[in-house]
């Protein structure tokens, strides 16, 4: 037995597409301890979904090892499925069952006894905000409501581990917070282990550990705080009146390490806050660009993600160039 709730070592998954091979997961290793909340993030097509499916035994692996709660993903897949709650990214419930019938179905296949069903179903429906819609067909729910029903269904058997693939896709900001509160409570009360793939960086922030996957490899694996600490420089934020001019201005400025956009705001990484703040203020004023709320803010996962991916891309390109020169 190993002590990890989820573990993978040198995991490789290849797909054969029109005779050539696509390597979706390329020698990935990770370990998630019981009670941890592990967030898997990465650009589109990096291999998050594939990793999750392989670990769960939904896809066969090409090579390497993977297990959940000590059960091998390939050989003991039923043991795993009995203990894990899973939400697929492209989740779709039987659309011609009602909300309640869906809940009963998932309770049934997970062998939840009748007593427990009576207790948990109303709780979960209330959490999903679906209590008054229990007789509506799942196919007639709104997109976000479907996803919430999926969440509720995946928790019906009180799993020890949940593997959630973009569970809050299309869920509104308020419900997203409630969902995370629920996960937090389950973790605190029942020691739930959470493995979550997410495109939301504010969600990654709430994980105890975050893995950044890039082209099938885990390139960063650390706590959010440590990941953010790696990003050099300090972060200034402001809202310019003329977005593209201000963006250009900052990009060309000395002491500016990186510029990112965030909504209508600019996020500027600088080496020296005091020096650059005045520099930016002056430059904006001289160009006649009005601005609002220029201040230093703490780096968040969103900025860290963009910065990390950019640097990864650059280093890959550089390596390719070096390779070509040789």
């Amino acid at each position: 037995m190993n002590q990890f709730a989820i573990s993978a070592a040198n995991l490789v998954k290849e797909f054969k597409v029109n005779k050539h091979v696509v390597t979706a997961v390329n020698g990935l290793s990770l370990q998630v301890a019981p009670g941890e909340t592990f967030g898997l993030i990465g650009p589109d097509g990096a291999g998050k979904t594939t990793t999750t499916r392989v670990i769960l035994g939904l896809l066969s692996r090409t090579s390497g090892e993977s297990s959940v709660l000590g059960f091998d993903s390939m050989n003991d897949m039923y043991q795993i499925r009995e203990r894990v709650g899973y939400i697929a990214q492209q989740f779709s419930l039987p659309p011609n069952l009602t909300v309640m019938e869906n809940m009963l179905f998932f309770a049934g296949v997970h062998s939840v006894d009748a007593e427990e069903q009576k207790k948990r179903i109303p709780e979960l429906l209330a959490f999903a905000g679906l209590s008054e819609f229990s007789n509506r067909l799942a196919g007639k729910l709104s997109g976000g409501m479907k996803k919430k029903l999926a969440l509720a269904c995946s928790l019906i058997h009180e799993p020890q581990v949940v593997m959630l693939d973009e569970p809050t896709l299309g869920v509104d900001p308020v419900s997203r917070r409630e969902f995370w509160n629920l996960l937090g409570n389950l973790r605190a009360e029942k020691g739930l282990t959470i493995f979550i793939c997410t495109p939301y960086m504010d969600e990654a922030e709430r994980c105890t550990r975050v893995g950044l996957i890039y082209e099938g490899k885990l390139i960063v694996d650390d706590s959010p705080a440590n990941i953010k600490r790696v990003i050099p420089g300090h972060l200034l934020e402001f809202t310019p009146s003329d977005f593209s001019s201000a963006l250009k201005l900052c990009n060309e400025m000395n002491g500016v390490l990186e510029v990112q956009t965030y909504g209508e705001k600019l996020h500027v990484f600088v080496d020296d806050v005091l020096k650059c703040k005045t520099q930016i203020e002056d430059a904006l004023a001289s160009q006649g660009i009005a601005y609002d709320h220029l201040r230093e803010i703490e780096v968040r996962m969103e900025e860290a993600f963009i910065s990390l991916i950019r640097r990864q891309k650059e280093s890959v390109e550089q390596n390719e160039m070096i390779g070509e020169v040789r």
Partner: peptide, 14 residues
């Protein structure tokens, strides 16, 4: 086609 298979496969159904 509905995509329900993945979710059903993830349950302990034999």
């Amino acid at each position: 086609e509905w995509g329900t298979m993945e979710q059903i496969l993830a349950t302990p159904v034999r």
